[in-house]
Amino acid sequence: TETYKYDDKREAEKAAEEFRRRGITVTVEERNGTWVLESK
């Protein structure tokens, strides 16, 4: 599991889209005002 942090929800979702395009499952969730993207 890799974790990436973003200040902006849009950025996180854009990154998530890129991962999914490569066939990687990711989750995006907000933690304490930071958007956390996790690849499984």
Score class of each variant (00 low, 15 high):
Thr34Gly: 14
Arg20Ile: 07
Glu29Lys: 10
Thr25Ile: 14
Asn32Trp: 03
Ala15Trp: 06
Ser39Ile: 15
Trp35Lys: 01
Glu38Val: 15
Lys5Val: 15
Trp35Ser: 02
Glu30Met: 10
Thr1Tyr: 14
Val36Gly: 02
Glu17His: 06
Arg31Ser: 07
Thr27Gly: 03
Ala16Tyr: 05
Glu13Ala: 05
Glu30Tyr: 15
Glu38Asp: 07
Phe19His: 05
Val36Ala: 03
Thr34Pro: 00
Gly23Ser: 02
Lys5Leu: 14
Lys40Ala: 12
Asn32Phe: 05
Ala16Asn: 00
Val36Leu: 06
Gly23Leu: 01
Leu37Phe: 03
Lys5Asn: 10
Trp35Asn: 02
Glu2Val: 14
Val26Asn: 00
Glu13Ile: 09
Glu18Met: 09
Ala15His: 08
Arg10Ser: 11
Ala12Cys: 12
Glu11Val: 06
Ala12Ile: 02
Arg31Cys: 11
Trp35Met: 02
Tyr6Ile: 01
Thr27Cys: 06
Arg31Trp: 09
Val28Asn: 00
Glu11Arg: 05
Arg20Phe: 07
Ile24Trp: 06
Thr1Glu: 10
Ser39Leu: 15
Lys14Ile: 11
Ile24Met: 11
Thr27Ala: 07
Phe19Ser: 03
Arg31Gln: 09
Lys9Cys: 07
Val36His: 06
Thr3Tyr: 13
Val28Tyr: 03
Val28Asp: 00
Asp7Asn: 14
Arg21Val: 07
Asp7Phe: 13
Asn32Ile: 02
Glu13His: 06
Glu13Pro: 00
Lys40Pro: 11
Ile24Arg: 08
Thr1Ser: 12
Lys14Met: 10
Thr1Met: 12
Glu18Pro: 01
Tyr6Leu: 01
Lys40Met: 12
Ile24Asp: 03
Arg21Met: 08
Ser39Trp: 15
Leu37Ala: 02
Glu2Trp: 09
Ala15Thr: 04
Phe19Asn: 02
Arg31Gly: 03
Arg31Tyr: 10
Ile24Thr: 03
Glu38Ile: 15
Thr25Trp: 14
Tyr6Trp: 04
Thr34Phe: 15
Thr25Ala: 12
Leu37Pro: 01
Gly33Gln: 02
Arg31Asn: 07
Val36Phe: 13
Lys14Tyr: 07
Glu38Gly: 04
Ala15Glu: 03
Thr25His: 14
Glu17Gln: 09
Asp7Leu: 14
Tyr6Thr: 02
Lys40His: 13
Asp7Met: 13
Asp8Trp: 03
Ile24Gln: 07
Thr3Val: 13
Gly23Pro: 00
Val36Trp: 13
Ser39Gln: 11
Glu13Thr: 05
Val36Ser: 03
Val26Met: 08
Trp35Gln: 02
Tyr4Asp: 04
Lys9Leu: 11
Thr3His: 11
Val36Met: 04
Lys5Trp: 15
Glu11Leu: 10
Thr3Ala: 09
Arg22Val: 06
Lys5Ala: 12
Arg10Met: 13
Ala15Pro: 00
Val36Lys: 01
Thr34Ile: 15
Glu29Asn: 08
Phe19Trp: 09
Arg20Pro: 00
Glu11Asn: 06
Ser39Lys: 13
Thr3Met: 12
Asn32Gln: 04
Glu38Leu: 13
Arg31Phe: 09
Phe19Glu: 02
Glu18Gly: 08
Val28Phe: 04
Thr3Ile: 13
Arg21Gly: 06
Trp35His: 03
Val28Trp: 03
Leu37Met: 04
Phe19Val: 04
Lys5Met: 14
Arg31Val: 12
Glu11Tyr: 04
Asp8Gln: 05
Arg22Pro: 01
Glu17Leu: 09
Phe19Tyr: 08
Tyr4Lys: 09
Asn32Tyr: 05
Tyr4Thr: 08
Leu37Thr: 03
Val36Pro: 01
Asp8Val: 06
Val28Leu: 12
Asp8Arg: 03
Phe19Gln: 04
Asp7Gly: 11
Leu37Lys: 00
Arg21Tyr: 04
Lys14Gln: 10
Val26Glu: 00
Ile24Val: 08
Glu30Arg: 08
Thr25Cys: 15
Lys40Trp: 14
Ser39Glu: 12
Gly33Glu: 03
Glu11Met: 09
Glu13Gly: 03
Ser39Gly: 07
Phe19Ala: 04
Lys14Leu: 11
Tyr6Gly: 00
Phe19Met: 13
Thr27Met: 08
Thr27Gln: 07
Arg22Cys: 12
Asp8Tyr: 04
Asp8Lys: 05
Glu2Arg: 14
Glu13Phe: 10
Thr1Asp: 09
Lys40Cys: 15
Val28Gly: 00
Gly33His: 03
Glu2Gln: 13
Arg21His: 06
Glu30Leu: 12
Gly33Ala: 02
Glu17Gly: 05
Thr34Lys: 15
Val26Arg: 01
Glu30Gln: 09
Val28Ser: 01
Lys40Ile: 14
Thr1Val: 12
Phe19Thr: 02
Glu17Met: 08
Ala16Cys: 07
Ala15Leu: 03
Tyr4Phe: 11
Phe19Asp: 01
Asp8His: 06
Glu17Phe: 05
Gly23Thr: 01
Ala12Asn: 00
Gly23Phe: 03
Ala12Glu: 00
Glu30Lys: 08
Arg22Leu: 10
Ala12Asp: 00
Val26Tyr: 06
Thr3Leu: 13
Trp35Glu: 01
Glu13Val: 06
Thr34Asn: 13
Ala15Lys: 08
Glu2Gly: 11
Arg10Cys: 15
Tyr6Ser: 01
Arg20Gln: 07
Lys40Tyr: 14
Thr25Glu: 14
Arg10Tyr: 12
Leu37Asn: 01
Thr1Lys: 11
Tyr4Met: 12
Tyr4Ala: 06
Leu37Gly: 01
Thr25Arg: 11
Glu13Trp: 07
Glu11Gly: 05
Asn32Pro: 00
Arg22Lys: 11
Glu13Met: 13
Asp7His: 13
Asn32Lys: 05
Tyr6His: 02
Lys40Arg: 09
Thr34Cys: 15
Arg20Ala: 09
